[in-house]
């Protein structure tokens, strides 16, 4: 294992993050605050408790997941797309590194950035609502696994994308709807019975449910199933990336 190379890629990617630290920090704080103003104060005050939890607190895990998933994808997809776009990918392809090392460097950095933003949102949320985290370790674990798995997905999107429009396409058309419909702002028990069944085909439901369980101890689906879903998603992404590097799809001519 070329650990020095992994560390070099990781540091190089993190340097990009630190160059724009203020924007990276400000954006999630601002959007989270807006969500709390709109959903928490304006609309939330008219909603009763959900599963025995104040609505303002109930949406915190969903809000964190929403940002963490989109940030993981955009960080990782941009991270690998940019070298392709400006041509610096030649250096990666000609270096003595294998696919796992490249992935660890890029995905590790993208996941770190998303994790940071996740904690920033959590900290911002505590300014608006009273929060107690029932299972802090599980919360960190879920957050970490979500960051990693969605960064892996972002990495695939970055390799697949041929232009900046495509880079935005999957997050915009698939991920955001799945997150919104995955119970970010409601419990799936609030849906009509038929939709409760349909929504179980949405993989994001399992992630948000598990993450919410780590906060409040209640969940829409069993926690074990949530962990299984996130594990399966990670494995699928890794398999796709392994295939990409084996065949050179869209990276080697």
């Amino acid at each position: 294992m070329n650990w020095t190379a992994i560390w070099s890629i990781y540091r190089f990617e993190m340097a990009r993050f630190f160059r724009t630290l203020f924007q990276s920090f400000l954006s999630p704080v601002l959007s989270t605050s807006l969500y709390f103003v709109v959903f928490g104060a304006a609309i939330g005050s008219r909603i009763d408790q959900v599963d025995g939890i104040d609505y303002g607190a109930f949406i915190v895990p969903g809000l964190i997941m929403l940002s963490v998933m989109t940030q993981s994808i955009s960080n990782a997809s941009f991270g690998i797309y940019f070298p392709k776009f400006i041509g610096t990918i030649y250096e990666l392809l000609s270096a003595p590194v294998n696919f796992l090392e490249i992935v660890l460097g890029y995905v590790g950095a993208a996941a770190t950035k998303a994790l940071f933003i996740g904690f920033v949102i959590l900290a911002t949320a505590t300014l608006f609502v009273d929060l107690t985290i029932a299972h802090p370790l599980a919360m960190v674990l879920f957050l970490l696994l979500t960051c990693l798995s969605f960064a892996l997905m972002g990495f695939i999107i970055g390799i697949w994308a041929k232009n900046f429009e495509q880079l935005q396409l999957v997050p915009l058309l698939i991920v955001t709807p799945l997150v919104f419909l995955g119970g970010s702002f409601y419990s799936i028990s609030m849906l009509p019975p038929i939709w409760q069944k349909i929504t179980l085909f949405n993989p994001v439901v399992y992630l948000i449910s598990g993450f919410r369980w780590s906060f409040f101890g209640t969940s829409d689906v069993p926690v074990g199933l949530s962990l299984l879903a996130i594990g399966a998603f990670t494995a699928l992404c890794l398999a796709v990336i392994w295939w990409i590097f084996k065949t050179g799809w869209r990276i080697r001519s």
Partner: peptide, 12 residues
């Protein structure tokens, strides 16, 4: 930093 990155990428 760009030059350091290249060295690191080759595991040196």
């Amino acid at each position: 930093n760009s030059v350091r990155f290249s060295r690191g990428l080759f595991g040196k």
